[in-house]
Amino acid sequence: MRAPLKLAAIDLDGTLLSPDKTISAENLAALQQLREAGLEIVVATGRHITRIGSIMPFVPDARWVVTCQGAAAHSLQKGESIHSVHLTPEEANLILKTGEQLGFSCIIYAEDQVRTLGKGPFIDFYGAYAGGMPQASSPAELEGLRIHKLIWLGEEGRIDGLPELPEVKAIPLYQIRTHEWIYEFLPRQASKAVGVAAVADLLGIKAEEVVAFGDADNDIPLFQWAGHSFAMPHGMPTAREAAHEIAPVGPPESAFARAVATLHLVPCTLP
């Protein structure tokens, strides 16, 4: 028997958000169902905290957000960080140098802002994909910044082969592919599972009382940690395999709503 659910951890891109980056009426109604059933809503995204401002007004009951693939977690009510891990300067410099040598564009998720050292079509694509253009910066401006993660951008065929490159294998960090043309590097102690667990611990909620929703490989650690999990039917094959359930087949913009419907939640008295 499934433990009573107390917290819902919800991915944004590919899960709560439609392909056009909006939230469908069905998914908005599903968020309300979760709230009426008494679940704490936690957004768990790879995005930077500065890249979710246009989305969070549609999730007004979310008091917590996990960002940067779990390298950071925030209390929205208090406007403060409750969890934060960073790359060391040596790690960041190694990734930047190796990426430049291999010909990849690089995105820097510093604590304060999303930044880039260069220009190009992949940078423009990333700005449209991830909620805003990164801030152009010089190497001198990066000095002293605390960096949550670094991203390489490149052609799909080149990203395919990255895990087998000796230069990449030699980088002792958490590595994850999050899109056909996006490859990310984070501290080993970073994942969405770690970020959501930091929120759950503050609230006295156990892993078995958490339900997670996602669509990609970066959601797999969260799926493995949470007591219950749903992958979107249009998600990555490895994510679908890792989840406890797959949302019923249908339009991608309402997949999250169909997953919530299968929980058969019962409304409770709201606080």
Rank of each mutant, 00 (worst) to 15 (best):
Q32I: 03
A92M: 01
A243L: 00
E91T: 01
C106S: 13
T98W: 05
L222T: 02
W225E: 01
Q77M: 13
V66Q: 08
L96M: 12
L162I: 09
M1N: 14
E180K: 11
R177F: 06
G157Q: 13
E91G: 01
A231W: 00
I23V: 12
I220S: 10
S84D: 15
S229N: 03
T50Q: 09
P89V: 00
S75L: 05
A8L: 00
G99H: 01
S191Q: 02
I23M: 11
A130E: 10
V168G: 11
D20N: 15
Y129G: 01
A200D: 12
P267R: 03
G214D: 05
R2G: 08
I49Y: 04
G214V: 00
A212T: 10
A212Y: 04
Q189H: 11
P221S: 06
L165H: 13
T45A: 01
G120I: 03
Y174E: 14
R35M: 01
E141W: 00
V249K: 14
A198D: 09
K192L: 10
A110W: 01
A193E: 04
I151Y: 06
R258L: 12
F58Q: 15
A193H: 06
H74W: 12
L12A: 07
I108E: 05
S24E: 07
Q224P: 01
V266Y: 06
T67R: 11
S254H: 04
K169Q: 15
A110C: 03
A193V: 02
F223D: 10
P139V: 03
A130P: 04
A190R: 05
D13E: 11
V266A: 12
L17I: 11
V199D: 05
G79P: 05
V266F: 04
S137I: 02
L34D: 02
F223E: 12
G154E: 08
R158I: 04
L173C: 07
P60K: 07
V194G: 07
S105H: 08
S75Y: 03
L145R: 14
F58S: 15
R188W: 07
V43S: 05
A72S: 13
G195F: 03
H234Q: 14
T50A: 11
A62V: 08
V194P: 06
K149D: 03
K169T: 12
E100I: 00
